[in-house]
Amino acid sequence: MDRRIKKNQTAIMNALIQLMAEKDFEKITINEIAERADVNRGTIYSHYADKYDLMDKCLAAQLQQLIESCSAVEDETDPNPSKTSLLRTLEQLEENALFYKTLLRNKALLSFRNQLQDMINNQIKTQFLENNLNLDKLSKDISVQFLSSATVGVIEWWFTHSNPCSAKEITEKLWSMLDLNLQMIRSQA
């Protein structure tokens, strides 16, 4: 991709994020985005159909980065790759705190929370499959939902309370709770 195009797209996405931190998504106009990004409206429309398409592409790009950071660590000497993946994910969230805080606070973007939870659901399902837990489907589904809801809830709390601790600290605390619950689930299998 041409560097100028990438630079414009980054500026446009950053402008949208900044505006969303200031006001509700529904009240943001293409003119405001263009002005903030220092591009003309035509540039925005050459990349995006409208502000909803821009938001969808912005979400997709950020979620793709999250998925990549959440993927299992390939270091075979790591005694706990799932915990390391959680840390990497929380570090990615922390690195882009303005974006995620804005999305989690903006009521118009409830779909982001659902997409985040789906991503975490998939990671937890993978963890269950890796551990060969012998649970019936209903027990497995309930366990996955419980663990992913708890994780997303803690992430939301972390952002709504202005990240009161580092990604490493919250990973340690969250992991100890998740691990305790996983042990209880394993004992029922």
Rank of each mutant, 00 (worst) to 15 (best):
L110E: 15
A37Q: 01
T102W: 06
K23L: 03
R41V: 04
L138S: 15
L147V: 09
S82P: 00
I155W: 02
K6A: 06
N31A: 15
D141W: 03
Q65V: 04
S148C: 03
D179R: 02
T10C: 05
Q18S: 12
D75R: 07
E94L: 11
I155C: 11
S139I: 08
T10A: 12
N106T: 10
A108Q: 11
L174S: 12
L103R: 09
Q64P: 00
L133H: 00
S82C: 12
I12A: 03
Y100F: 15
A11H: 08
R88I: 00
A189L: 09
Q18I: 12
D24R: 14
T77H: 10
T29C: 05
G153R: 08
T160S: 09
L90T: 10
Q115D: 14
Q18C: 13
C165E: 15
I170W: 03
E26P: 09
A97V: 07
K140N: 12
I120P: 15
D53V: 00
I185R: 05
K125V: 11
W175A: 01
Q9P: 04
P79V: 14
A21E: 15
N114M: 10
E74N: 00
E35H: 04
A37I: 00
L135D: 03
Y52Q: 11
Q127G: 06
G42I: 13
I120R: 06
I120N: 09
L86Y: 00
F159D: 10
F159N: 06
L174Y: 15
I17S: 04
V144A: 02
S166Y: 05
A150S: 14
F159E: 11
A108Y: 05
